[in-house]
Design a protein around this nucleic acid. Structure first.
Length: 285
DNA sequence: GTCCAGGTTTTTA
DNA sequence: TAAAAACATGGA
């Protein structure tokens, strides 16, 4: 597991928030949307995004971020943590749609959908297929160590697509990612060549965007949907994995996810986390 | 040792 | 077309 510490004399920036902001770091980082944030023994979560390492904690109703410049705070982190979206209003809207949606949102009211780098999200969820979370984290961490840029000792950026695109399968052997290595290479080549253009995909209709991503070998409906939701912040995207399929069947019988509307993706995150943390919900037969 | 993992591709009927 | 099986690896 990657656990970083920031080195000496870095700034300690604080953003004041009030409790209605609906932001909980444990819930946000551990609800299955990301793989590179880990809690350190000093109480801060450390993680890397867009080649920057920070520590973050929420204490006394303040978001405390260490290791970020004022510029990065404004230009990267505020956006990354989606701080300008009113989750309170969205939850109200979702809760009116279905009572179980209300229940799921109440279970982890501080979840926010991170705005991750699309290439990193695509790659992470290719790796996630038929895999368990500890091993997903391990493979991603190894990918960064092997091919990312060193930010400080033991801390590496997520490698750019054009770096990975120049590799061969044997180069990826140290990652121990099995049959997924050819998928990663195909994705990297298509992204690096511009055949897959996230900027364009981000503006396409959901259906078309999904089709476009599925041109990559190893990318099916689920990975495409995760890329759209977590990497391109398409909040109407609705990834259906085994947990979500079961949850829809048992908790929302006869409900079409379309009914969840423009924020279906956020609904999905509440339901996914609620289901995984409460497996007894399904203990029927 | 066995089962299984935020799926997708390939093979088989 | 649709349902199985295979896929590589190691966590639990």
């Amino acid at each position: 597991m990657e656990v970083f510490k920031l080195k000496n004399d870095l700034l300690n920036k604080k953003i004041k928030i009030n409790s209605s902001l609906n932001f909980d770091l444990n819930e946000t980082f551990n609800c299955g949307q990301c793989f590179r944030w880990n809690k350190s023994d000093d109480g801060y979560f450390y993680g890397i995004a867009f080649n920057k390492l920070i520590g973050i904690a929420i204490k006394d109703n303040e978001i405390q971020i260490i290791g970020a410049s004022q510029l990065d705070l404004d230009e990267i982190w505020r956006h990354y943590f989606d701080l300008d979206l009113d989750y309170s209003a969205i939850k109200k809207q979702l809760s009116n749609i279905h009572p179980v949606l209300n229940q799921a949102a109440k279970f982890a009211p501080g979840i926010r959908i991170l705005r991750q780098d699309p290439w990193e999200a695509l790659c992470s969820f290719i790796i996630s297929q038929n895999n368990n979370i500890p091993r997903i984290k391990k493979i991603i961490s190894s990918m960064c160590e092997n091919f990312g840029e060193k930010i400080q000792d033991g801390c590496f950026s997520f490698p750019e697509a054009n770096i990975i695109s120049k590799l061969e399968e044997k180069d990826l052997a140290p990652l121990r990612c099995g049959f997924r290595s050819s998928y990663i290479l195909d994705a990297a080549k298509k992204v690096a060549s511009g055949e897959i253009n996230f900027n364009q995909i981000g503006h396409m209709a959901l259906e078309q965007a999904r089709e476009e991503l599925m041109k990559i070998k190893g990318v099916g409906p689920k990975v495409a949907e995760c890329t759209l939701l977590y990497g391109l912040h398409r909040l109407d995207a609705f990834p259906l994995d085994v947990w979500m399929k079961r949850a829809m069947q048992e908790l929302f019988p006869g409900v079409d996810p379309q009914a969840f509307g423009e924020y279906a993706g956020i609904a999905q995150q509440y339901i996914f986390h609620y289901s995984r943390m409460n497996p007894t919900l399904f203990k029927k037969d």
